[in-house]
Amino acid sequence: MTEAAIRTTTLTRDFGAVRAVDALTLEVPPGIIFGFLGANGAGKTTTINLLLGLLEPTTGQAQVLGFDTLTQGSAIRQRTGALLEFSGLYERLSAEDNLDFYGRVWHLSTAERQARIKELLTHVGLYDRRNERVGTWSRGMKQKLAITRVLLHRPTLIFLDEPTAGLDPVAAAALRDDLEGLVADEGVTVFLNTHNLPEAERLCQQVGVIRSGKLLTVGSPDLLRRQTGSPQAEVSGDGFTPEVLARLLARRDIASARVENKHLILELTDQQVKMAPIVTALVEAGVQIEEVRRGQASLEDVFLTLMEEDRAKVAIS
């Protein structure tokens, strides 16, 4: 059995009266991109700090790459790269000086350091600007440089906290391709903190959803969609009157119906529900149908459902 890249057991961290991470039990297999999803303040960043051994857990324990975070933090940091909440760049220094410093930190030889800096900066299109002070750069450029710094020493596990924040769409897409390449070609494990759900849906083989420090669920995006999200159908056309919606809602196979931008969005009660009787009912009600599409709930729908369910549970208790 392959050892998990990350394993936590009832990992808990309090800051005074606030419980930032609450009994987190999680296992991340090696060689995948794991998306850790949650709203701001959910406990994602604290979790990364705990996994890197930068914070001590209040209770519980965690192993990263087989090393205990409490007693072997140094061994973990030796083998990992981290882009934390902030880029962490020295803005008074040039891009090259920033990378040179961290290259020395990771004991890369002079030749290796120079070659790697050139390779990475060229890849992100910043090599010609390597002598400029980082403080004069745009946020997106800084973010690219910070990601370059994370990859400099070829870590086996990478922690990324909102890596595409501040990147333009082209740069964000390029980063996503790079991450997929790293995982496929070099077997790197990526722990990705994000609230960019489409990004997580596209990139991650597994995701965990955290709210108020508690892990609500974990699994592949497909599994979560099946478990949590309802099957949907989208009907394009004209004539979606309130009477039509009322007739649809009276049916047992439709959980909800709403109109968005002239599109009728139906949430079906079951995967097995057939669309033909519903289409017939719509035509009989006078709706002019142009297109019917079946689909699954997006990861965003799953996420919002989980948040809502947990909020309701908390309210009841």
Binding site: L54, R77, S87, L89, V105, W106
Partner: peptide, 14 residues
């Protein structure tokens, strides 16, 4: 203050 400390601490430096 400049948010570089966390990254430094996350490195392999003792």
């Amino acid at each position: 203050e400049r948010h570089t400390l966390e990254t430094l601490l996350a490195s392999r430096l003792s």
